[in-house]
Computed example of a mutant assay.
Amino acid sequence: MIRILLVDDHAVVRMGLKMLLNDNKNMEVIGEASEGNEAIQKVQELQPNVVLMDLSMPHGKDGLSATSEIKKLLPDIYILILTMHDDEEYLFRAIQAGASGCILKSAPHDELIKAIQSVAGGSAYLYPSATKRLMEEYVGHLKQGGNMDTYSLLSDREKEVLTLIAKGYSNKEVAEKLVISVKTVETHKSNLMEKLKMKTRPELVEYAVKKGLLGYGV
């Protein structure tokens, strides 16, 4: 029996998924959560085999942050990201956060069942277009010499924030230059540091110098 925790900010979506999954004799929904912090708590209480995690939850902790924390606390729990975003950036961020797979919300019901069974068995699962994209990315890196460059994982906005921080601008000054809030700058900074596996500003500056980012105006 695959024990599943549903995490989605829409109660109607959770209800529909619960009915679908409980109709499968090998699956049981043992709990629900409406945002990431609640998901982290429920995972520790209920010990599910699989967490079906919504990516975008505007209230509370988002799906990627929750996934990362859950995998640190309980690395043996498998997480399947449920998303409406068929986007390369979200795909790589989900994998880096520790998810075992991604499936689109628009996927047929039988594909969702297959995806849950795959990750519960210890395998990875990616929706078809994501698999193709990942293969293309891998082949591209091989052609460049086989080195996986983490810079490619950054979004365009994260690259802008990285460059400005490396040039010595404060978070407030970065926010003013990019016309975004200081909180948004801090979020981008946190995300890019996690992707680059760095903890300090000097590390970011050194990285930016090596990438040649400080030679360009923003």
Rank of each mutant, 00 (worst) to 15 (best):
S65D: 14
K195M: 11
G217N: 10
I81L: 12
M193C: 15
S65M: 14
V7N: 00
Q47P: 00
L162G: 02
G122W: 04
V50F: 04
K105N: 10
Q44A: 12
K25F: 06
Y90Q: 08
S106M: 11
S68T: 00
L112T: 02
V218P: 00
G121Q: 10
K132N: 11
L154W: 07
L74V: 15
I180D: 06
H109G: 06
L112V: 03
D23H: 03
G212S: 06
D156C: 04
A124F: 15
V161Y: 00
D86C: 04
M148K: 11
S65G: 03
Q117L: 14
S123V: 01
N147F: 13
G31H: 01
Q144P: 10
L164W: 07
G121M: 08
T187A: 12
T187E: 13
L214A: 07
L154E: 04
V205Y: 11
A124S: 15
N49H: 15
K61Y: 06
G140W: 09
S155G: 12
H10P: 07
M148H: 12
G140I: 04
G140V: 05
M27P: 04
L213W: 08
I79P: 01
I180Q: 08
D156S: 15
K189S: 12
R201M: 09
S118A: 15
P108L: 09
G168E: 12
A39P: 05
V13K: 01
H188C: 06
T67A: 12
M27Q: 08
G63C: 11
H109R: 15
L126A: 03
N49M: 07
Y216S: 10
I81H: 03
I2H: 01
G145V: 10
I116V: 14
K199L: 03
Y169D: 04
E45I: 13
V7R: 00
I77L: 12
Y216E: 13
V139F: 07
K159N: 09
Y151V: 09
S106I: 12
L162I: 06
Y127T: 10
L204D: 01
E206H: 02
V43M: 14
N171L: 02
S170Y: 05
V12M: 13
S68L: 01
Y127Q: 07
M53A: 05
M27A: 11
S56T: 11
E136T: 14
M193R: 15
A166P: 06
